[in-house]
Every structure is written in structure tokens, then in C-alpha cells.
Amino acid sequence: MCLGIPGEVLTLDVERPGMATVNVGGARRQVNVMLIEEDGVQPGDWVLIHVGFALAKIDEEEAQLTLSYLEEMGQAYRDELQALAESRID
């Protein structure tokens, strides 16, 4: 729950404003991006995701750093990814 997971924005959802399809660890997930300020997010942006919401925009280098940190966490990260995989936010 406390882990921020990086994801790369693929497309913005036209039908549901505020939602985006994001590549998270190789899987496509729906994420709410309404908390990102100002000009919002664009495809290609990286975001840090907490419980289904993008909380911050980050650069790609930071995303990779965070991903390797998470992978080192082992079980806690696998549990979070598993929960995310079972999530069907819409």
C-alpha cells in the first residue's frame, strides 16, 4: 500500500477523462491521473502510482531507479504487483 510504483503512460482515456492506460511492469493498467497538476500527463510520461492513482510525474531515470529498488524488495513488491494485476479500476 505504501509502495509507489512507476509506470509509463501509454494513452489517455478519451471516454473517461482523468483515466489513463499505463504500462506497469510490462502490464497495461488503468490508472487515475487526476491528481497530476497543471498540464497533466501525456503519453510517454512516467508517473509514480499509489493505490491506483498517479501522485507525481517523474523522469525515466528516476523510474528505473525506483523499479530496481522495488525489485530488491522481493515479496512486498511481488504482493503489490499481484494486487495491481488483480485490480480492475474503471
Binding site: M1, C2, N32, V51, G52, F53, E80, A83, L84, E86, S87, R88, I89, D90
Partner: peptide, 25 residues
């Protein structure tokens, strides 16, 4: 659930149930 939005989906698809999200953090 992974996200409170999952709870919302569960509520939508179970209109005859009362769905509660245990919010912590």
C-alpha cells in the same frame, strides 16, 4: 483490493450489498 477504486467497482456490481472500504494510510 489494490485501490479504493476497486471497492467502488465492487459496489457498482453488487447493488444489493453494502460495500465498505477500510481506509488506512
Amino acid at each position: 483490493v489494490y485501490s479504493p477504486l476497486d471497492s467502488l467497482r465492487i459496489a457498482r456490481s453488487n447493488p444489493d450489498r453494502r460495500v465498505v472500504f477500510m481506509a488506512i494510510g
